[in-house]
């Protein structure tokens, strides 16, 4: 009996240690990134780094404001294109989809989620870029198709699976009484869904949007291929931009010394963005 009690204790310890690893991992990632990033920040000056509008690493001018703007624009664009379509599709899946179609469609959104981002990047480069280039020339906006609009659409497509699955789950979590009550009062199918069920699932849908936003901010490989990557502040959506993630990936290989630290500091800024989004998400799930 005593041995068994010992076993219990030991295993509880093991479980506890395992549980601590994820905390440790976050702590480690923070320490490593911040340690390496702050070197650059202190040398360049945090304000100059964040608000500087010129990025010319070969003469040691490091300003990442254009990249912050780029990430914000592209993320906003992705949310604007991906979230409404995602929510409507989720409504379709939950309330309209014929039973026979449901399983294959559900499976295909899972596949959409599993496709590597490199594949999306090539798809964007070969299919979406020429489309937008023609559109730009049609509207007289010029540009060669590698721009904010293209990146937003591509990212919009990439966040669809996340938005669809989270929204659908939250729609299904709304008790069917809500729908039936509304239907009994004579509301149409759409009124039942959009005036009663969707508002009831509000917090879940918001969480879906925020999750999608997180994916869009962090996306790298696909964005590099279609966003144009110019390190300057764009004046319209037919101009290219560089995101924070692109800045890191494009130049990491070549960078040395201060340049490299500046790139890691870019990663730190990105990390801060993600943390803010996560805190927001945690706040949402708590207020639910």
């Amino acid at each position: 009996m005593i041995r068994q009690a010992w076993n219990e204790k030991i295993m509880q310890g093991v479980f506890f240690v395992a549980a601590c690893t994820s905390v440790l991992a976050v702590a480690f990632i923070c320490i490593f990134l911040f340690h390496n990033g702050t070197l650059a920040l202190s040398e360049i000056g945090i304000w100059d780094f964040l608000s500087g509008t010129v990025w010319r690493p070969n003469i040691e001018i490091f300003g990442i404001f254009p990249m912050i703007v780029g990430s914000v624009y592209i993320t906003a664009g992705a949310v604007l294109t991906g979230v409404p379509i995602g929510i409507f599709t989720a409504v379709f899946m939950a309330f309209y989809c014929p039973k026979k179609l449901y399983r294959p469609l559900k499976a295909s959104t899972d596949i959409l989620a599993g496709i590597p981002s490199v594949v999306y990047g090539f798809f964007g480069l070969v299919v979406i870029v020429p489309l937008i280039r023609d559109l730009g020339q049609f509207l007289g906006m010029g540009g060669n198709g590698n721009n904010i609009l293209t990146a937003s659409i591509l990212l919009g497509i990439m966040i669809l699976p996340t938005v669809i699955s989270v929204t659908e789950a939250s729609l299904r979590a709304v008790p069917s009484l809500y729908y039936e009550g509304a239907a009994a009062l004579g509301a149409t199918h759409e009124q039942c869904i959009f005036k009663v069920v969707v508002p009831a699932a509000k917090s879940g849908i918001l969480a879906a949007a925020v999750l999608g936003m997180g994916r869009a901010v962090g996306e790298t490989m696909a964005v590099i291929m279609v966003a144009g990557n110019q390190a300057r502040i764009p004046s319209d959506i037919f101009q290219g931009v560089r995101t924070l993630t692109a800045n890191v990936v494009i130049e990491m290989g070549y960078a040395a010394d201060l340049h490299r630290d500046a790139l890691i500091a870019t990663g730190v800024v990105l990390f801060a963005f993600i943390l803010i989004i996560n805190l927001f998400l945690a706040y949402l799930s708590r207020s639910k």
């Binding site: 901010v217 962090g218 890191v248 990390f271």
Partner: peptide, 28 residues
């Protein structure tokens, strides 16, 4: 409290873009 902390950290880990994992992996 511990569960709360772990929950926050797992959510944080889940939200970190892969490029940051790459940087961290390279440094560490």
């Amino acid at each position: 409290r511990f569960v709360e902390i772990i929950r926050i950290t797992t959510v944080t880990l889940a939200g970190i873009p892969s490029i940051i994992y790459g940087l961290f992996g390279m440094l560490f």
